[in-house]
């Protein structure tokens, strides 16, 4: 009840500690506005730079991330409004993607996915592989056949994965990234 939402960033040099965890999700988020990956990556890169330059210490991690999302959204919208990109965008889609609801919805979607993906990435390779196949809809016996291992191994590895994921998500917002290196 009290372990989450408890992390603050105190130095602008600590932003880089979050870069790996946040970057991919933010790029996919930006692609909701700008489909081109290179454009999206540029926008996210610039948002991180802006955050670094305007950093105020002692901000809560969620406030910092919220700032990134807003900056990215605004930059994307500016780009869309700007010249060329506009022609490729249908009027209707544009209207929808400029709305506050669309923004909040996409933030929520990407945050959930980022939390899950980052947790899954910390799993040992075999666990991860099994989990991915199971997400693909494969049954235990099919996974066992695919990977040439026993059904019991599949079951126990799945159990292990879920246990690990639970632990991971418990800590996800709690641990300062600086400290994950310890």
């Amino acid at each position: 009840m009290h372990e989450e939402h408890s992390t603050y960033i105190n130095s602008k040099h600590d932003i880089s500690k979050y870069f790996d965890l946040w970057y991919p999700g933010l790029v996919v988020f930006a692609q909701q506005f700008l489909p081109d990956q290179a454009d999206a990556e540029d926008v996210v890169q610039n948002a991180f730079i802006k955050l670094f330059e305007n950093f105020e210490k002692g901000k809560h991690i969620n406030v910092v991330k919220g700032y990134l999302y807003k900056t990215i959204r605004n930059k994307c919208i500016n780009l869309i409004k700007h010249e060329k990109v506009k022609q490729r965008h249908a009027q209707q889609a544009e209207k929808e993607s400029f709305s506050e609801e669309f923004f909040l919805e996409k933030v929520l979607e990407e945050e959930t996915m980022t939390a899950l993906v980052n947790a899954i990435n910390t799993l040992p390779n075999q666990c991860k592989e099994i989990l991915m196949l199971s997400l693909n809809g494969l049954k235990n016996n099919e996974i066992a056949e695919d990977l040439n291992i026993s059904i019991n191994t599949v079951k126990s590895q799945k159990l292990r994965s879920y246990r690990r994921l639970r632990e991971q998500l418990k800590d996800i917002y709690q641990i300062i990234a600086v400290l994950t290196s310890v």
């Binding site: 990956q37 959930t112 809809g137």
Partner: peptide, 28 residues
Amino acid sequence: SLHDKKKLEMRLQAYQAIDTAKAKEKYL
């Protein structure tokens, strides 16, 4: 819609396709 396993699967691939290390180097 968030409980859709396909969505998660798509993300796992999309995130992997992004070269985060390179972007971080640029940022640093």
